[in-house]
Design a protein around this nucleic acid. Structure first.
Lengths: 342, 342
DNA sequence: TTGTAGGCGTTATCAC
DNA sequence: GTGATAACGCCTACAA
C-alpha cells in the first residue's frame, strides 16, 4: 500500500489542534463549525504534509465509499466506451469514481463481479448487462442497492433505467427500407434474453403485422450474442434458407458487421444486392465498407443520464425509480439503396 | 450503502465461536490454524447468512485493498479496450479489481485521478498515459507505489514497463515501403512528449540516416495528440508543403485515419497515389477503406504482462523494475502498394 | 468553537 | 486451537 501516509492525527499534531477539529475542517459539510483562522491553519498544514483522506477509513465510518460499480458486457464493442466516458465524467464531477468491470457477456462472471463490487462497498451500480431476467438486478433490489440500468432493461419493474426507444428505431429502419422500395426484409436479432434483443425483434414483427411488409419466419434469426461472429453465423442461416430478400435489419452494428462478412463470403454485394441497417451508430460504423446506415443513439447522454440518475438515487434512497427513454435517429449512409430489379 | 450487512460478528454469534476464529476461517492464509470441524461449521454459517467480507475494513486493517488503478489516455481509441481486458482478466484471477479511469489525454485530470486513486488505497498502478516527463510517475516513485507502465514509457529509469519494440516496428514499415519501391516517405508522428511519439520519430529518422530513404523536414510532422483530428491537421500541413512523396508512415492507427481524411479532402487516393501505414493494428483497422497496413501489437499480452508484473511488484516491494519489450508484426493490407509512376 | 470518546469491520498479536 | 484485545483512520454524538 505504498509508503507511510500522513493521517489526520499527524496534521492535528502539526497544527496544534485535536484530530476531530482537523476532520471538521477537511470536511466541507462541517467546515463552518470551526473558526476561520483555525481552519486556514489546518488546511495549510494539511497541504504542507501532503495529507489525503483515506476513503477506506472514512467509508468504513460513514458507510459511503464514493465509489460506483459499472458493469459492461463487452468493452470491445465500440458503443460502450463513449457511454463509459459519459458515466465517468459525471461521476467524477460529483466526487465519485467508477469501478469498471467487463463481464464478457458471461452471467456467471457478472455475479462474481457483483460480489466483488459489493465487498468494496460501492454506493450504487450502473448495469449495462441486464437480461430480461437478471439475478444481479434481483440481488440489488434485495440489498436495496441503488441501481440504474443503461441501454438494456429488464422485466423487473421498479428499477431506474436509461434506454433507447428501440421501437422507434426499428420503425425508422423499416420505413427507410420500405421507402427505398424493399418488400422482403430479413431481421438479424440479438439474444432474446436481452431487452434489446427481444424488443427490437418485437418491434420488427409489429411493423410486419401492421402490413408494412410480409413477415417470414425463415428471414428472422436471433443471434446468440451481439458480436460480429454471432452475426456471421446468424446471417449464414438466413442465407441458407434460400428465401429471397433484399434487405436486412441487424439489431446492432456488430451484428451488421457479421452480416457484411456473410454477404462477402457469398459474393453478395451491399447495397447493390442486399441493403443492411444496423443499430447504435457505434464509432467506426461510418468507416466500414460500405459505411453503415444505422440508428444513432446518444452515447454520451446515455452515460451522463445513467450516472446522474444513480447519484440522485444514492442521495435519496426513497426515490421512485425512473425510466428515461432516448430517441434514436436514423443515419443514412451507403449500406442501403433501392433494391435492384432482379 | 445498501442494507444491513452481515458481518463477522454475526457469523461468530451464529456459529458460537469468537469473531477472530471466524476471521481465521474465512482467510485462506490462516484457515489451517483452526480445527477442521469448527472451520466447516463456520463456513456453512457464513454461507447461510450470506456473509461477505468488507474489503474496506479488511483493507484498512491490513493495508491491502486488492484494488489496482488503471489510467488510460483515451478509452475511445480501440487499441485500449483489449489491453484493459487483458489487465482485468489477470487481476481478477488474482482477486484484484481494477479502478479504471480515462484521463482524456489531460495531464491535469491525470493528477486528479491519481489523487483519487491514492485516497482509495490502491495497491498499485498501471499507467498507459506516461509522458517522457511525468509527474504521476514521479509521485508513484516518491510514494513507493508499485507501478507498471504499459505501451508508453518515460525518461525515468527504475520503473517497470511493458512496451512495444517501436524501433523494430518502424523499421518493418520502412522496409516494407522501400521494398515496394517508395523513396520519398513522410512521417506523421505523435506528441513528442510521449515515448511512442518521440521513439517512433527517432526510429524513422534513424532509418533515413541509414540511407534507406532521404529525410525531408517538410515531410515530418508531430501531431498534438494520437487522434484522428490531430492526424488530419498534421497531414494537411505535410500536404501543404507541396514537397512530393509517395508514402506516409503514421505513428498510430488513429493518426492514419486522420491521414485518410486529409487525402480524401484533396481527392488523393490511397494506395494508388499515396501509401499509408499505421501502428497498433487496433480493432477495426482491418475494416477501414482501404484496410490499413499496420503493425500488429500484442494487445492482450500487453495487458496480461502489465498486470502480472504489477502483481509481482505488489507481492515483492523490493523487486527490481523490469522492462518487457514485445515485438510488433507487420500486417500488410490494402493501404500500401507500389508507387505509381507519376 | 473545540475536545472527548466510541465505533465502523477486520485482523495481528497476545494470552490461555 | 481458540478467545480477548487493540488498532487501522476517520467521523460524530456529546460534553465542555
Amino acid at each position: 500500500m505504498a509508503k507511510p501516509k500522513v493521517n489526520i492525527k499527524d496534521v492535528a499534531a502539526a497544527a496544534n489542534v485535536h484530530p476531530s477539529t482537523v476532520s471538521r475542517v477537511l470536511n466541507p459539510a462541517t467546515r463552518s463549525m470551526v473558526s476561520a483562522d483555525v481552519a486556514t491553519r489546518v488546511q495549510q498544514v494539511a497541504a504542507k504534509l501532503g495529507y489525503s483522506r483515506s476513503s477506506l477509513a472514512s467509508g468504513l465510518r460513514t458507510g459511503r465509499s464514493y465509489t460506483v460499480g459499472v458493469i459492461i458486457p463487452d468493452l470491445s464493442n465500440p458503443v460502450f466506451p463513449p457511454v463509459v466516458r459519459g458515466i465517468e465524467r459525471t461521476l467524477s464531477a460529483a466526487g465519485y469514481i467508477a469501478l469498471l468491470a467487463d463481464s464478457d457477456n458471461n452471467p456467471k462472471s457478472e455475479q462474481a463481479i457483483f460480489d466483488s463490487l459489493k465487498a468494496r462497498h460501492i454506493d450504487g451500480l450502473i448495469l449495462a448487462t441486464a437480461h430480461t431476467e437478471d439475478s444481479v438486478v434481483a440481488a440489488c433490489l434485495e440489498d436495496r442497492m441503488p441501481l440504474v440500468l443503461v441501454n438494456r432493461t429488464t422485466d423487473e419493474m421498479d428499477v431506474s433505467e436509461v434506454v433507447n426507444n428501440d421501437e422507434l428505431g426499428i420503425q425508422l429502419a423499416v420505413s427507410h427500407l420500405i421507402g427505398l422500395g424493399h418488400q422482403r426484409i430479413a431481421f438479424l436479432g440479438g439474444p432474446e434474453n436481452t431487452s434489446t434483443g427481444s424488443g427490437r425483434l418485437q418491434a420488427f414483427q409489429q411493423q410486419g403485422r401492421l402490413g408494412k411488409f410480409k413477415l417470414q419466419a425463415d428471414l428472422m434469426r436471433s443471434c446468440t450474442a451481439f458480436t460480429e461472429a454471432a452475426g456471421l453465423d446468424g446471417m449464414r442461416l438466413i442465407l441458407e434458407s434460400s428465401r429471397p430478400f433484399t434487405a436486412v435489419i441487424a439489431a446492432n452494428d456488430m451484428l451488421a458487421m457479421g452480416c457484411y462478412d456473410a454477404l462477402a463470403e457469398r459474393g453478395i454485394s451491399c447495397p447493390q444486392d442486399i441493403s443492411v441497417t444496423g443499430f447504435n451508430d457505434m464509432p467506426f460504423s461510418d468507416r466500414l465498407s460500405p459505411p453503415l446506415t444505422t440508428l444513432h443513439i446518444q452515447h454520451d447522454e446515455l452515460g451522463v443520464k445513467a450516472a446522474s440518475t444513480l447519484l440522485e438515487e444514492i442521495r435519496d434512497p426513497g426515490m421512485v425509480p425512473r425510466t428515461l427513454t432516448l430517441d434514436p435517429q436514423l443515419v443514412v449512409r451507403e449500406s442501403t439503396a433501392k433494391p435492384s430489379n432482379q
